[in-house]
């Protein structure tokens, strides 16, 4: 009796593992395929098997992708713009959260609701008018054309998370600081901000993930390559090498690499951050 029970348990375990492995294969195999084809030559692609064993590993694909795809330039832009966006979102959302939560004024509820409204507005509905505004103000092809909308559209979520975390910070801490003669700015940046560390991590991760992959605004507001971001190494490359598939695979793998590598390294923190943001949201 006991034996059959145990057997059943292990059969159940096998099914559980089977499900998990199957889903993992579905999720990861396209990427393995991408990597495999990126190392082959274009002539080898028309096979009947699922994966190719390249006759000679074509590292040259990656060299072409790296050089002709302007990889470093686009990567640098992406890092710079996203880094700045994260810092600005944090700064603006912490200040606004403090003002709406702790400061005493009549419009605090109204302003908070107004800023949070941004969460409901579809980004793409602002593409047309924003294009007009930026071209009238000669801001197209500048870093501002990306930075302003990136920060503005990440702000509502940042503010939402910051206010919900900040409301858990006890007010007694501030009272003590006021007794010691701290001003408001010092209270915000030297007392509140350090306590908010975990939520700062969450907001940073959410903002970074949202904007890292963005290209619709970038392709609308930018025409010269000066400030274009990483997705453009793929978008522009495919036109240039339209018949050389293998090199296109290489440029895709290369473009995906930074985010995947960072994710695998910071896996635990990112998972925690996303989960925290999602549960609060």
């Amino acid at each position: 009796m006991e034996k059959t029970g145990k057997k059943k348990m292990s059969a159940g375990k096998v099914i559980l593992w089977g499900i998990l492995i199957f889903v993992a294969v579905v999720q990861i195999f396209p990427l393995v395929w991408l990597l495999d084809f990126s190392l082959a030559s274009s002539n080898e692609m028309f096979t009947n098997g699922l994966l190719i064993i390249p006759e000679k590993i074509q590292w040259g694909n990656y060299v072409k992708a790296f050089v002709d795809g302007n990889f470093l330039h686009y990567l640098k832009n992406s890092l710079l713009i996203n880094g700045l966006a994260v810092v600005l979102v944090l700064l603006v959302s912490i200040m606004a959260a403090f003002a709406c939560l702790r400061m005493q004024w009549k419009l605090n509820g109204f302003v908070k609701t107004l800023l949070l409204m941004g969460m409901m507005i579809p980004i793409h509905a602002t593409l047309l008018p924003n294009y007009k505004i930026y071209s009238t103000l000669h801001m197209t092809d500048t870093i501002w054309a990306l930075l302003i909308p990136y920060v503005a559209f990440s702000l509502p979520q940042g503010l939402f998370l910051m206010t919900s975390f900040m409301s858990a910070v006890p007010a007694e801490l501030e009272e003590a600081a006021v007794m010691d003669g701290c001003g408001i700015y010092r209270i915000i940046f030297q007392i509140i901000t350090p306590i908010l560390k975990p939520s700062i991590a969450t907001v940073s991760i959410m903002t970074f993930l949202n904007n890292w992959n963005e290209f619709m605004m970038a392709s609308t507001y930018l025409s010269s390559p000066k400030w274009k971001t990483l997705p453009f190494s793929v978008l522009e490359f495919t036109g240039q090498y339209s018949s050389n598939y293998a090199v296109q695979f290489a440029v895709m793998a290369l473009t995906a690499a930074p985010a995947v590598i960072i994710y695998v390294i910071l896996n635990k923190h990112i998972t925690k951050g996303v989960a925290m943001g999602a549960v609060k949201g």
């Binding site: 992959n213 290209f215 995947v260």
Partner: peptide, 15 residues
């Protein structure tokens, strides 16, 4: 598994 399932999510929509 959690890590593997999430990987497609961090890859750019363009890719």
């Amino acid at each position: 598994f959690r890590c593997v399932y999430f990987i497609p999510n961090v890859i750019s929509v363009a890719v």
